[in-house]
Design a protein around this nucleic acid. Structure first.
Length: 859
RNA sequence: GGGUGCAUAGCUCAGUUGGUUAGAGCACCGCCCUUACAAGGCGGGUGUCGGGGGUUCGAGUCCCUCUGCGCCCACCA
């Protein structure tokens, strides 16, 4: 790294630095990952692959900056930084976006139409009815839309100065991802960790797909209690229940009360008759029944909620499910309704959706007098798919699961143990993991009845009636992956056996997007395709992500890594906070308060936006704050000007070294800053590293530079000037490097004025050579005197150039010695004619200004 | 109901293992065209560190408790 003569611009500016250096970094491949290093030389980051859906969110700028500062720091420490980017383009988010911009809807029963053209490419009118298209047509539309989105995204990430090695780019729908995802699934299957089950499943009736526990959320929605009378079969009156879902009456299979409930104890074992449908159902006891809820006795339906599923399973009840995949009541009158009256009642609700069915049932109950009083409105929590708009229904379906400890204590404990092994930043985020894993109530449902995803790589034998025999799984050879079973043919079969009696059929489902993204270390690290690379990067060093996806992405990744490799997938989990809008409200698309970073980048510049982001403490929710960006902008400008000033002296002669006590003291303080920044970065506390560096830098500019300016200009002779210049340059060079992780553009700019190569490939500063000889504590009294002189002049409403006749300082010996040691510098900086120093406590400074104005300042 | 985080100047926040008079920026006010910087620089005031109790020579920092706000999980008849 040789110096060359400075080419400082006449008028330094931040304008245009982004474009210039983005291009240069790309041309120089500055962030290229050198894969020749051994594992301990590598720092590997499991970057979150964003859903590349058009606009970058300010939250991306926030959290990606955090990770990038760490990446840049590690790179300067000499690590081979493995910093890939991925696009999470598989899954429902993309499907929805494609539906919204092209005006189509996938109908897998349709045949492929090679000439199909989407009705729209952009804004679809509100009244447009989606055009049904075949699955291959739909998938191909998805591919073309995401391709465009991802180009835009890449430019934005580059513009944010994120030091990605773009040659490592992956997409979760790409071939590498599909291969890794299918291979991992087949490995799970072979080891018995993946299994299929036909069971009641929470199901989104709009998206027509099963949903995993991790993707559900509770929402408070209005509902109402309906008090309904069931007729005791012994004719001895009615049994009253409260229900929020009267529309499920026809699915009632039993009544249940707590075993100790004296009110109902005598009835256990007897039967009652359901209103309207006149079906006999037993009265049973179960400890989950809560005597304080409603009337203390509940009707069990298949299936109103998850408690119904538990009762159904544990009490061995029959299944009388009526709600179909579309959320509507079955058209045909079910066989368990045998009375004429019951059948007539059912005819009224057959085929209705949940809301209409409820209205109709209530109407019928009121007519028959079996509902007591009006419905009593309440608000109650109901399970929704997190992206859904109607409550989930419970439908019995065959689905694929991966064991995650939800039904197996040993596995659960093993996964809790993995959570212990991870180093969490901040540490308390570990609680969320424990909370989640401890509260799992089932295995991980990974099959989705969707289209744009990684197919489940299996076929099933068909029986003589063309029904799939789900126990007879046909598994592809691993070398063929990835495969699409709707196109590929199982070994030993020919394509003309597809869908034929005795032939085969492909599994129609795709995997949950998390089932693929839980393998990002494998996908990015080349698990299947590049084992040599994988051995160098896995387990990775760092997984950055936000706390809302601990239960999905983080936990899923731990599950996969545990099952596949018996280890955690990374050493550190760094959890970033959320972005709040300027009013400190959580930012969300639905609230319409989302801030796009592009305007902020244009107005303040990338470094300024990064400065704001890096000021947000790890894990802390942070509000968008343009004030911070203004400060960041100012900091960048200051760096330009300070650099221009220091370099303006030219290069001192070879051999010139800092020797004045104040110079050595400054360097010694800087050594402390290096140590603190280094320690902070090693603990992933970028914000602290920035804060230390920044406060040093402002002190450096305000006090130190002002103090030594005269000497550097040569007022005390050439040797003194060269010493000051050497100190200034030495400090400046370190300041450039300390700021480089935060302000990549402006630091690269100023570095280029006097150094060869990229500052981002320079080594992280070492405090060792600076620490000797200086005494940082000397700087305090010196700053004190400078401040006192300035204050005196300001209060006297004089220019800072005003002369001081006499400076009288009383203070402890050490302070006086420090002042004495840079007396000439102080005299020049403050225009001080005479010093009078005397020992005493406390430190007091009296400033006698030239026109005989006395100002006493001190404590 | 279980868990967890936060509460410091008008605002946004920093205060690393307890240690001298509690800090920064913004905002507000004043001064200064000082040869790096006027889209600058210099200077200024403001705090029962949420309430109460405890440990300690010493508490913003540790313990207990209460209050308020937020988040995660559970409950869903």
């Amino acid at each position: 790294m040789s110096e060359h003569s400075s080419n400082t611009p006449e008028k330094p500016t931040l304008d245009g630095v982004e474009a210039r250096w983005m291009q240069q970094w790309e041309a120089d491949d500055t962030y290229h990952f050198d894969r020749t290093g051994t594992r301990d030389q590598v720092f590997a980051i499991d970057t979150p692959p964003p859903t590349a859906s058009g606009a970058l969110h300010i939250g991306h700028a926030f959290s990606y900056t955090h990770t990038d500062t760490i990446a840049r720091y590690q790179r300067m420490r000499g690590k081979h930084v493995f910093y890939p980017m991925g696009w999470d383009d598989n899954g429902l988010a993309t499907e929805r976006r494609v539906q919204n911009v092209t005006g189509v809807r996938c109908d897998p029963s349709l045949p492929f139409d090679p000439d199909f053209i989407a009705p729209y490419t952009g804004d679809v009118p509100k009244d447009h009815r989606p055009v049904p298209v075949s699955r291959p047509n739909f998938v191909s539309l998805c591919h073309s839309v995401i391709h465009d989105d991802e180009e835009v995204f890449e430019q934005l990430v580059r513009r944010l100065g994120i030091s990605i090695d773009w040659s490592l780019l992956y997409t979760t729908i790409g071939e590498r991802s599909q291969r890794a995802s299918q291979r991992a699934f087949l490995n799970n299957l072979a080891r018995g960790e993946a299994y299929q089950q036909d069971a009641p499943t929470l199901y989104d009736i709009d998206e027509r797909t099963a949903v995993a526990q991790a993707e559900m959320e509770d929402r408070d929605v209005p509902g109402a209690y309906h008090k309904i009378a069931f007729h005791r079969s012994d004719g001895d009156g009615d049994l009253l229940i409260d229900t929020t879902r009267p529309e499920l009456l026809a699915s009632c299979v039993a009544m249940v009360a707590h075993p100790d409930d004296a009110r109902y104890k005598p009835l256990f074992g007897s039967t009652v008759r359901t209103p309207l449908f006149e079906v006999e159902v037993p009265v049973l006891a179960h400890h989950l029944a809560d005597p304080d809820k409603g009337t203390g006795i509940a009707m069990i339906c298949t299936f109103g909620d998850t408690t119904d599923v538990t009762w159904w399973r544990e009490l061995n009840l029959p299944s009388r499910a009526l709600i179909g995949f579309d959320g509507r009541m079955a058209i045909d009158t079910p066989p368990w309704i045998t009375s004429t009256g019951g059948q007539a009642a059912y005819a009224h609700v057959a085929g209705l959706g949940p809301k209409q069915a409820q209205r109709k049932i209530v109407e019928l109950l009121l007519e028959s007098g079996e509902m007591l009083g009006e419905p009593r409105p309440i608000n109650h929590p109901v399970k929704f798919y997190e992206r859904g708009s109607r409550p989930l229904e419970i439908v019995a379906t065959r689905q694929w699961y991966i064991r995650n400890g939800g039904r197996d204590e040993a596995l659960r404990n093993a996964l809790l143990e993995r959570g212990e092994q991870l180093i969490w930043h901040p540490a308390y985020m570990h609680n969320r993991y424990q909370n989640w894993v401890g509260g799992l109530n089932g295995d991980w449902l990974i099959s989705r009845q969707r289209f744009f995803g990684v197919p489940i790589p299996l076929w099933y034998r068909l029986d003589d009636d063309c029904n799939p025999v789900h126990d007879e799984i046909l598994i592809p050879d691993g070398a063929r992956l990835p495969i699409d079973p709707s196109v590929a043919c199982p070994e030993g079969f020919t394509d003309d056996q597809r869908g034929k009696p005795g032939g085969f059929v492909g599994d129609p489902d795709v995997m949950d997007t998390w089932a693929t993204s839980s393998l990002t270390p494998h996908i990015a690290g080349g698990w299947i395709d590049d084992p040599e690379l994988f051995a160098r990067v896995f387990p990775m060093d760092m997984r950055p992500q936000s706390h809302d996806i601990i239960r999905t992405w983080l936990f899923g990744s731990v599950v996969r890594s545990h099952l596949e490799h018996g280890c955690v997938p990374w050493t550190h989990a760094t959890i970033s906070g959320w972005i709040l809008d300027p009013d400190r409200k959580k930012m969300s698309k639905s609230k319409g308060n989302v801030v796009t970073p592009i305007n902020l980048l244009q107005e303040y510049g990338t470094d300024a936006v990064r400065y704001w982001a890096a000021s947000g403490r790890p894990g802390v929710d942070t509000a968008v704050d343009e004030g911070q960006m203004k400060i960041g902008r100012k900091l960048g400008t200051k760096l330009l000007n300070a650099t221009k000033f220091v370099l303006g002296f030219g290069e001192p002669p070879a051999g010139a070294v800092p020797s004045a006590p104040v110079d050595l003291a400054m360097l010694s303080r800087l050594a402390e800053v290096i140590d603190e920044a280094t320690r902070a970065f090693d603990e992933f506390d970028y914000a602290r590293a920035l804060e230390r560096t920044e406060s040093f830098f402002w002190w450096f500019c305000d006090d130190y530079v002002e103090l030594v300016k005269g000497r550097a200009y040569g007022t005390q002779g050439d040797d003194a000037a060269h010493g000051a210049q050497a100190a200034l340059r030495q400090a400046l060079e370190i300041i450039h490097r300390l700021f480089a992780p935060f302000l990549p553009f402006v630091t690269e700019e100023v570095w280029s004025w006097w150094r060869v190569g990229s500052v981002h490939r320079a080594t992280w500063p070492d405090s060792q050579p600076l620490a000797s000889g200086g005494d940082a504590s000397q700087l305090l009294p010196v700053s004190e005197v400078l401040g006192a002189v300035r204050r005196a002049k300001t209060e006297a409403k004089l220019s800072q150039r005003a002369a001081v006749d006499e400076l009288i300082v009383t203070g402890p010996r050490a302070a006086l010695e420090a002042i004495e040691a840079c007396r000439t510098d102080l005299a020049e900086a403050g225009g001080i004619a005479q010093f009078t120093l005397s020992e005493g406590e406390p430190l007091t400074t009296t400033v006698r200004l030239a026109p005989s104005t006395d100002t006493r300042v001190g404590h």
